[in-house]
Simulated scan of single mutants.
Amino acid sequence: MSIGSMMGPGGPGGGPDQDEEPARKRRGLRALLVGLIALLVLVLLAAAGIVLVTQHLGSQVGRYPSVFAPIDPSSRPADAAGQTFLLMGTDTRSPEATTGTDAAPDAVFGSTRSDVIMVATIAEDGQSASIISIPRDSWVDVPGRGKNKINAAYAFGGPPLLIETVEQLSRVHIDHFAVIDFAGFAQMTDSVGGIDVNVGQETERDGVVVPAGPQHLNGEQALVYVRERKSLPGGDLDRVRRQQAALRAFVQKTLSSGTLSSPTTAYAAVDSVTRHVGVDDSLSNTGLAQLAFGMRDLRNSAISFLTVPVTGTGDEGGQSVVYLDDGAGRDLWFAVNTDAVPQWVAARPQEQLSATPR
Rank of each mutant, 00 (worst) to 15 (best):
I3S: 11
M7H: 09
G8M: 08
P12W: 08
E20I: 11
E20T: 10
E20C: 08
E21W: 09
K25F: 09
R26A: 10
R26D: 08
A31E: 09
L36C: 13
L40W: 10
Q55C: 04
V61F: 01
R63F: 08
Y64N: 09
S74K: 12
A80W: 02
A81G: 14
Q83Y: 08
T84Y: 04
L87N: 00
G89R: 02
E96T: 13
D102H: 05
A103D: 05
R113S: 00
D115P: 01
V116T: 14
V116P: 00
M118N: 01
M118Y: 05
A120V: 14
A120W: 05
A123E: 05
Q127G: 11
S130Q: 13
I134F: 04
P135I: 03
D137Y: 04
S138D: 07
V140Y: 02
V142N: 00
G146N: 12
I150D: 00
Y154G: 01
P159R: 02
L162V: 00
L162A: 01
V172P: 01
H176D: 06
A178M: 09
V179Y: 00
V179G: 00
D181P: 01
D181E: 06
A186V: 04
M188R: 07
G193L: 13
I195E: 02
D196C: 03
T203W: 03
T203E: 05
G207T: 11
V210C: 10
V210G: 01
P211D: 13
N218R: 10
G219L: 08
L223N: 03
V224F: 06
Y225N: 01
K230N: 08
P233N: 08
G234T: 05
V240S: 15
Q244A: 11
A249H: 00
V251H: 07
Q252N: 14
K253S: 13
K253I: 07
S262R: 11
P263R: 14
A266C: 12
A268Y: 06
D271V: 01
V273Q: 03
R275G: 04
H276T: 09
S282A: 14
T286A: 13
Q290T: 13
L291A: 05
D297V: 03
L298H: 11
L298M: 10
R299A: 13
F305E: 03
T307D: 06
D315G: 05
Q319V: 12
Q319W: 04
Q319T: 14
Y323N: 10
A328P: 01
G329K: 03
D331R: 15
A335Q: 09
N337M: 10
T338L: 07
T338Y: 09
P342R: 14
V345E: 11
E351T: 12
P357V: 01
